[in-house]
Amino acid sequence: MDTEEFLPSVTASFAEAVGPEADAVVEEMDARADREGFPTVGPAVGGWLRLLARAVDAERVFEFGSGYGYSAYWMAPALPPDGELVLTEFDEDELADAREYLERGGYADRAVFEAGDALATVEGYRGPFDLVLLDHEKERYAEAFEAVREKVPVGGVVCADNAMTAGPIEFDALRRLVGGAEDADDVDTTDATRGIADYLETVRADPAFETTLLPLGEGLSVSIRVE
């Protein structure tokens, strides 16, 4: 499903115009995404991630799935120089590119680059993490949340990208699953769609978190720890 069905392109473009201005490195990363068809959150969501990091006075951030560092680059300016931004990525070439982009932007001093499985990586880190971004395998979002929830303090935030759509996500099926349709158990859909539905059900049912949805990009779920 095209994201145009969720948010008119003129509105998305206006959100980008109003948000933080992209620097030359972000513009290069955006051009790469367009050229290669690489999925990133895009400038509008990137601006919101930076704003959320500032709003919670983030000192430590953990990413599940970093690609070549696009989301991390947007959030990095919100962290203090002695902060910690942990990037995780299976593809070592992409992680090397992320390092280069963050070095060029002057933010490598607060970045840690972890190659491999993010779920295995996070087990080696103590909390707290003020902001967590889930943007890896959709089938593992709920598992990632359970792995990190105790490391998020009251006032901290867990964000999940692709909460509405992405290549393998079927929005009509997702809406039926999350909306509790009578035939939800019989919905024939993708594993990624069910993964997003399971995640949203998990965070919405957790009394320690309050969750809402930001309908920009491909949908950003935002959950703040309230107790």
Rank of each mutant, 00 (worst) to 15 (best):
R149C: 03
P77H: 15
P80V: 05
A120M: 10
V226F: 12
L87S: 07
R204T: 04
R99Q: 15
G156E: 15
P168H: 10
G217S: 11
L131A: 03
S223D: 10
D191N: 05
P8Y: 08
P207K: 04
A192S: 15
G124P: 14
L95K: 09
R50V: 00
E114C: 06
R32Q: 14
E21H: 13
A118H: 08
P20L: 07
T190I: 05
R176C: 09
V56C: 14
H136I: 00
A111V: 13
L102T: 12
T189R: 14
L134S: 12
A163Y: 14
P215A: 11
R35Y: 12
A120Y: 10
E94L: 09
E36G: 00
L95M: 05
A208E: 14
G65F: 14
R50A: 03
D130G: 04
D97E: 15
A76I: 06
A173Y: 11
A108R: 01
A72T: 05
L95G: 02
R60W: 02
A76N: 07
M29K: 00
V112P: 03
G42T: 04
P8E: 12
N162M: 04
A98W: 05
P81Q: 15
K151Q: 13
L133N: 08
E103V: 07
A192G: 08
A111E: 15
L174W: 12
D186Y: 08
C159T: 14
R99I: 03
D117S: 02
V187P: 12
A58V: 06
R32Y: 15
V158Q: 11
G116E: 15
L174F: 14
V122S: 09
D30S: 01
A111P: 06
E100Y: 05
A197Q: 05
G69V: 02
T193L: 14
L7R: 11
L200N: 06
Y73K: 05
G46K: 00
R110Y: 08
V132T: 03
V152H: 10
A147F: 08
G37R: 00
A184T: 02
